[in-house]
Computed example of a mutant assay.
Amino acid sequence: MSKVFIVTGASRGLGLAVAQILIQASHKVFLVARTEKNLQQLKTQHATSVDFMAADLADLKVAPKIIDSAVRAFGKIDGIVVNHGVLAPITKISESSVEEWRHAYDINVFSALALIKEAIPELRKSQGRVVFVSSGAAFGAYAGWGSYGTSKAALTHLCTHLAVEEPSITSVAISPGKVDTEMQRQIRDDGKSGMSPEIHASFVDEHESGKLLDPKKPGNVIAKLVEGATSNLNGKHYRWNAAELANFQGA
């Protein structure tokens, strides 16, 4: 049976992979990202199963418009993949701007909170699911990654709180690993000055040696979780390839 999902950060990388997998599974997908061109392309290819809004989620007034538009387009919401986020600033705390941190939190935390808050009534109706895209950086620390790591930690804990307060909605946080996306390119290109030399070099090496993940691998797990995550996963965090998610890792 066809379900309706919202996917943020859906114009490229991991979000695009998740959206494509859901579309291929005959679901309806409402796409959100800043870049309209790629969203329009998917809409053109899948006219009846895709709609979208090109928007900057850091503008918190956008959240109710997204929920309203998704319900208008497809009648309900069965799940949300909170995938959007920014890495910048890649700067040590001593050299950083508090305003840059505030902007990162607006995107990585507050925009997600605004979207989920608006979606709760619809997700209660559908006993829906939310998958938060977290990061290993939420649990460790790299020099220069303070705003990213701490904001992803906040996002991951938001998942836990949502699970406690809304038990009819299954919420899961997933770390997708090192995926071959624009964010990895940004680490290689912009991270040298803010990161420790050996850690930065390790990211460069993983790219050059072909060790970065194809977005479809964690994307497949995320798509299957938003489609059918079970209640025993509620409020928990997992790496995309964790043994506990074996049922969601098949082709």
Rank of each mutant, 00 (worst) to 15 (best):
S2A: 14
S2G: 05
V7Q: 08
V7R: 13
G9L: 05
G15A: 05
L16K: 15
V18H: 08
I21V: 14
L39F: 04
Q40R: 11
T48Q: 13
A58E: 15
A73H: 07
F74W: 09
K76D: 00
I77C: 13
V81A: 10
N83G: 02
L87S: 04
L87T: 05
I93R: 01
I93Y: 10
S94L: 06
V98E: 07
Y105G: 09
N108Y: 08
V109Y: 02
L113I: 15
I120K: 02
L123N: 01
L123C: 04
G128Q: 05
V130C: 00
V130I: 15
S134E: 00
G140N: 12
Y142S: 05
A143L: 04
L162T: 11
L162M: 08
L162K: 12
E166T: 10
E166R: 03
T170R: 15
S171M: 14
P176N: 13
K178G: 08
V179I: 09
T181H: 10
T181F: 12
R185G: 13
I187D: 07
R188F: 06
G191H: 06
K192R: 11
S193M: 07
S196C: 06
S196W: 00
V204A: 12
V204H: 11
V204E: 06
G210C: 03
L212K: 06
L212H: 09
P215F: 09
K217A: 08
N220D: 00
K224Q: 14
S231F: 03
N232D: 15
K236W: 01
Y238R: 03
N241A: 04
A251D: 12
